[in-house]
Design a protein around this nucleic acid. Structure first.
Lengths: 201, 201
DNA sequence: CCCGACCGATGACAGGTGTCACGCCGAGGT
DNA sequence: ACCTCGGCGTGACACCTGTCATCGGTCGGG
């Protein structure tokens, strides 16, 4: 019997995944949480062996939760299950110690198998995603560029960003200009979108 | 026995919802589709009585699918189940003839009940969302403003938008300026984000 | 019939934005 | 000690953007 923890902020999806996995005779959902920062505690309390982690969650991302599990409960394996198959996400999830990475449009039949493989100590990664994450490499952005791009995501004017990080407008423009060059974009908004698509943020 | 159709582009979520609902003794999932434009045909072929529709789908939105069901198969009721509780979505879903509107972070226990109520001819709408959709009213945007805002969503420069719709740059600027005024924003990107949040796009 | 709403367009202007050149500093690597 | 790289800043320049005034055309309703 494999003991599972589910972490997803959408209660309906979480409950549905629980129903799906509980149908399998060798799987048992022993805990469910809706926030990233509750994963470690719930995993400890429930004695989970495998954790299914969504990435977009309040409190802490699923990737950070995987890293925390790695530190605190090294015996527990984690499988990241997310909506977006962004190349950078795969890379970062694996670096954080996750054993697998599955996107939410894979057939539901395959999920239980993925869980079993992860429990057996194998890695489970969508081959297309793995290839993509290799070809475009790690993020070329510096720390500041990454930070400023996240603020530029919603199209905020340079002045607003500068105020938010207590920098000169000119400096912000320079960092963003550099990021625009590295992403191949022509505006900061486009650069932010590209960086997000690649999982660089 | 209530016959259900599920429409969601994420196969994993779709399968999981099927597992969840099939647990109920009086519910039966008789069809699953991953595209909005396959809903009507599948509903007809399977003899579904209630359709669960996600909004964001390829081919056709769940709202348009609800409208198509209304037209083609008036006896079939539809329940919109979506990630985002945008006020405008609720309004448009109801106007399209949907009998219910549920967001994906409601507890999974309540979904089966919502299905039963819809099947019984009742309306099921999250009370908070209904209130919100009343207070900020219908979209004040004109057709062109709406269209141009969708193109502005990703931060495209005015020139690119103008080329795409074969309009003068000045005209595009005027429409967007008007939309900026109506949304209370200060840039076109912010206006687009606000309009999207309210379900005006 | 005239009015209002929507659409399309032009021109002008202030202010925002992207680029470039250049400078300074501190941390690490050789 | 030297060099490189990231970070921070300035100034200048060309271009983009948002706003406003103004014009003309269409179409439906009072």
């Amino acid at each position: 019997m494999i003991r599972l923890l589910l972490a997803d902020d959408q209660a309906l999806v979480r409950g549905a995944l629980a129903a799906l996995l509980d149908l399998e005779p060798d799987l048992e959902v022993v805990a469910q949480v809706g926030r990233g920062d509750e994963v470690v505690e719930a995993a400890r309390a429930s004695g989970a062996e495998v954790c299914l982690l969504d990435i977009e969650m309040p409190g802490m991302t699923g990737i950070d939760a995987a890293a925390a599990l790695r530190r605190e409960l090294p015996g527990v394996r984690s499988l990241v299950v997310t909506t977006f198959g962004r190349p950078g996400y795969v890379r970062r999830a694996i670096e954080a110690g996750a054993s697998g990475f599955v996107v939410k449009d894979t057939p539901s039949r395959q999920l239980a198998d993925a869980v079993r493989r992860v429990h057996a100590g194998l890695r489970v990664i969508d081959p297309d995603l793995a290839a993509e994450s290799l070809i475009d490499g790690p993020s070329p952005l510096t720390g500041r560029e990454r930070e400023l791009l996240t603020y530029a995501l919603d199209g905020s004017p340079v002045a607003a960003i500068a105020a938010r990080v207590h920098l000169s407008e000119g400096t912000v423009r320079n960092h963003l200009s550099s990021a625009i060059g590295k992403t191949g974009a022509t505006t900061r908004t486009e650069a932010a979108r590209i960086a997000q698509d690649r999982g660089w943020l």
